[in-house]
Protein backbone atom coordinates (compact mmCIF):
# COMPACT_ATOMS: atom_id res chain seq x y z
CA UNK A 1 0.00 0.00 0.00
CA UNK A 2 1.23 3.51 -0.80
CA UNK A 3 2.05 6.04 1.87
CA UNK A 4 -0.80 8.27 0.81
CA UNK A 5 -3.90 7.88 2.91
CA UNK A 6 -6.87 6.28 1.23
CA UNK A 7 -9.45 8.92 0.36
CA UNK A 8 -13.03 8.08 1.20
CA UNK A 9 -16.16 10.06 0.43
CA UNK A 10 -19.67 9.32 1.65
CA UNK A 11 -23.12 10.76 1.07
CA UNK A 12 -26.76 10.05 1.70
CA UNK A 13 -29.22 10.42 -1.18
CA UNK A 14 -32.80 9.27 -0.53
CA UNK A 15 -31.80 7.74 2.78
CA UNK A 16 -32.10 8.49 6.48
CA UNK A 17 -28.40 8.72 7.44
CA UNK A 18 -28.94 5.55 9.44
CA UNK A 19 -26.17 3.88 7.45
CA UNK A 20 -23.83 6.69 8.41
CA UNK A 21 -24.78 6.18 12.04
CA UNK A 22 -23.97 2.53 11.71
CA UNK A 23 -20.58 3.40 10.20
CA UNK A 24 -19.89 5.44 13.32
CA UNK A 25 -20.82 2.38 15.35
CA UNK A 26 -17.45 0.85 14.53
CA UNK A 27 -16.60 2.87 17.63
CA UNK A 28 -12.98 2.89 18.76
CA UNK A 29 -11.95 1.24 15.52
CA UNK A 30 -12.52 4.68 13.99
CA UNK A 31 -9.22 5.83 15.44
CA UNK A 32 -7.32 3.11 13.71
CA UNK A 33 -9.24 3.76 10.53
CA UNK A 34 -8.29 7.42 10.54
CA UNK A 35 -4.64 6.43 10.48
CA UNK A 36 -5.23 4.88 7.11
CA UNK A 37 -8.05 6.96 5.68
CA UNK A 38 -8.84 10.57 5.08
CA UNK A 39 -12.39 11.66 4.50
CA UNK A 40 -13.29 13.83 1.54
CA UNK A 41 -16.91 14.85 1.06
CA UNK A 42 -19.02 13.42 3.86
CA UNK A 43 -21.66 14.78 6.20
CA UNK A 44 -18.90 14.52 8.83
CA UNK A 45 -16.42 16.86 7.12
CA UNK A 46 -19.04 19.13 5.57
CA UNK A 47 -17.04 19.22 2.33
CA UNK A 48 -19.70 20.03 -0.31
CA UNK A 49 -18.29 18.38 -3.40
CA UNK A 50 -16.57 15.12 -3.95
CA UNK A 51 -12.97 15.35 -5.13
CA UNK A 52 -10.88 12.49 -6.51
CA UNK A 53 -11.28 9.56 -4.11
CA UNK A 54 -10.42 5.91 -3.79
CA UNK A 55 -13.67 4.79 -2.27
CA UNK A 56 -17.15 6.30 -2.34
CA UNK A 57 -19.87 5.04 0.00
CA UNK A 58 -23.35 6.00 -1.15
CA UNK A 59 -26.34 5.62 1.13
CA UNK A 60 -29.91 6.01 -0.10
CA UNK A 61 -31.70 5.56 -3.40
CA UNK A 62 -32.28 7.99 -6.22
CA UNK A 63 -35.53 9.88 -5.76
CA UNK A 64 -34.88 13.23 -7.44
CA UNK A 65 -32.75 15.13 -9.93
CA UNK A 66 -30.26 16.35 -7.34
CA UNK A 67 -29.56 12.75 -6.26
CA UNK A 68 -28.49 12.04 -9.84
CA UNK A 69 -26.07 14.98 -9.89
CA UNK A 70 -24.48 13.89 -6.62
CA UNK A 71 -24.35 10.26 -7.65
CA UNK A 72 -22.74 11.05 -10.99
CA UNK A 73 -20.18 13.25 -9.23
CA UNK A 74 -19.33 10.34 -6.95
CA UNK A 75 -19.08 7.93 -9.86
CA UNK A 76 -16.80 10.32 -11.71
CA UNK A 77 -14.49 10.87 -8.77
CA UNK A 78 -14.44 7.55 -6.94
CA UNK A 79 -12.38 4.63 -8.16
CA UNK A 80 -14.57 2.23 -6.22
CA UNK A 81 -18.20 3.02 -5.61
CA UNK A 82 -20.12 1.09 -2.96
CA UNK A 83 -23.91 1.02 -2.59
CA UNK A 84 -24.55 1.08 1.12
CA UNK A 85 -27.81 -0.04 2.70
CA UNK A 86 -31.25 -1.21 1.59
CA UNK A 87 -32.27 2.11 -0.01
CA UNK A 88 -29.21 2.31 -2.27
CA UNK A 89 -29.67 -1.34 -3.23
CA UNK A 90 -33.44 -1.76 -3.60
CA UNK A 91 -34.90 1.73 -3.22
CA UNK A 92 -35.77 0.75 0.34
CA UNK A 93 -38.53 2.44 2.32
CA UNK A 94 -38.70 5.51 0.07
CA UNK A 95 -39.62 3.11 -2.75
CA UNK A 96 -42.86 2.39 -0.90
CA UNK A 97 -44.14 5.50 -2.67
CA UNK A 98 -43.46 3.93 -6.06
CA UNK A 99 -47.03 2.89 -6.62
CA UNK A 100 -48.56 6.09 -5.38
CA UNK A 101 -49.19 8.54 -8.17
CA UNK A 102 -46.88 11.56 -7.92
CA UNK A 103 -49.86 13.91 -8.28
CA UNK A 104 -51.44 12.30 -5.22
CA UNK A 105 -48.18 12.66 -3.26
CA UNK A 106 -47.94 16.36 -4.06
CA UNK A 107 -51.59 17.00 -3.30
CA UNK A 108 -51.34 15.18 -0.01
CA UNK A 109 -48.25 17.14 1.07
CA UNK A 110 -48.90 20.60 -0.29
CA UNK A 111 -52.63 20.97 -0.76
CA UNK A 112 -54.50 18.85 1.74
CA UNK A 113 -52.13 19.48 4.63
CA UNK A 114 -52.80 22.76 6.35
CA UNK A 115 -50.22 25.39 7.21
CA UNK A 116 -48.60 26.03 3.88
CA UNK A 117 -49.17 29.33 2.23
CA UNK A 118 -51.97 29.18 -0.33
CA UNK A 119 -51.77 25.38 -0.52
CA UNK A 120 -49.73 25.66 -3.70
CA UNK A 121 -47.20 23.22 -5.09
CA UNK A 122 -43.82 24.99 -4.80
CA UNK A 123 -41.98 25.64 -8.05
CA UNK A 124 -38.69 27.02 -6.74
CA UNK A 125 -35.80 25.84 -8.97
CA UNK A 126 -33.72 25.24 -5.83
CA UNK A 127 -35.99 22.39 -4.82
CA UNK A 128 -34.91 19.06 -6.29
CA UNK A 129 -37.52 17.74 -8.70
CA UNK A 130 -38.73 14.24 -7.79
CA UNK A 131 -38.80 11.23 -10.09
CA UNK A 132 -41.92 9.19 -10.81
CA UNK A 133 -40.32 6.38 -8.85
CA UNK A 134 -37.43 5.90 -6.45
CA UNK A 135 -34.65 3.73 -7.87
CA UNK A 136 -31.64 1.95 -6.42
CA UNK A 137 -28.40 3.65 -7.40
CA UNK A 138 -27.16 0.73 -9.50
CA UNK A 139 -29.93 1.52 -11.99
CA UNK A 140 -28.33 4.94 -12.59
CA UNK A 141 -24.56 4.40 -12.42
CA UNK A 142 -22.29 1.39 -12.35
CA UNK A 143 -21.69 0.14 -8.81
CA UNK A 144 -18.68 -1.92 -7.78
CA UNK A 145 -19.73 -3.34 -4.41
CA UNK A 146 -22.84 -3.66 -2.31
CA UNK A 147 -23.25 -3.55 1.44
CA UNK A 148 -26.82 -4.60 2.28
CA UNK A 149 -28.72 -3.99 5.49
CA UNK A 150 -31.02 -1.45 7.05
CA UNK A 151 -28.53 -0.37 8.20
CA UNK A 152 -25.57 -2.61 7.43
CA UNK A 153 -24.01 -3.67 10.77
CA UNK A 154 -20.92 -1.79 11.92
CA UNK A 155 -18.95 -5.00 11.57
CA UNK A 156 -19.96 -5.20 7.95
CA UNK A 157 -18.67 -1.68 7.35
CA UNK A 158 -15.45 -2.60 9.11
CA UNK A 159 -15.07 -5.76 7.04
CA UNK A 160 -15.74 -3.97 3.77
CA UNK A 161 -13.30 -1.17 4.50
CA UNK A 162 -10.52 -3.38 5.82
CA UNK A 163 -10.91 -5.77 2.89
CA UNK A 164 -10.69 -2.87 0.45
CA UNK A 165 -7.76 -1.29 2.30
CA UNK A 166 -5.92 -4.59 2.13
CA UNK A 167 -6.71 -5.15 -1.51
CA UNK A 168 -8.98 -8.10 -0.82
CA UNK A 169 -12.28 -8.83 -2.53
CA UNK A 170 -14.80 -7.82 0.16
CA UNK A 171 -16.64 -10.77 1.65
CA UNK A 172 -19.13 -10.67 4.49
CA UNK A 173 -19.63 -13.42 7.04
CA UNK A 174 -23.12 -14.94 7.16
CA UNK A 175 -24.11 -12.94 10.27
CA UNK A 176 -23.09 -9.68 8.59
CA UNK A 177 -25.37 -10.20 5.58
CA UNK A 178 -28.94 -9.18 6.13
CA UNK A 179 -31.51 -7.04 4.38
CA UNK A 180 -33.28 -5.57 7.40
Amino acid sequence: MSDRKIRVATCSLAGCFGCHMSLLDIDERLFGLLELVEFNRTPLTDIKHCGPCDVGLVEGGVCNAENVHVLKEFRKNCKILVAVGACAITGGLPAMRNNIDLWDCFQEVYQYEGGLEGGKVPNDPELPLPFDKVHPIYEVVKIDYFLPGCPPPADAFWRLLTDLLNGREPKLDYEMLHYD
Binding site: W103, V121, L129, D132
Partner: peptide
Protein backbone atom coordinates in the same frame (compact mmCIF):
# COMPACT_ATOMS: atom_id res chain seq x y z
CA UNK B 1 -38.88 10.27 -15.22
CA UNK B 2 -39.03 13.94 -14.22
CA UNK B 3 -41.82 14.79 -16.66
CA UNK B 4 -44.69 14.23 -14.23
CA UNK B 5 -43.07 16.44 -11.61
CA UNK B 6 -42.41 19.13 -14.22
CA UNK B 7 -46.09 19.11 -15.11
CA UNK B 8 -47.18 19.30 -11.49
CA UNK B 9 -44.83 22.12 -10.56
CA UNK B 10 -44.98 23.92 -13.88
CA UNK B 11 -41.18 24.06 -13.92
Amino acid sequence: ALETARKITGR
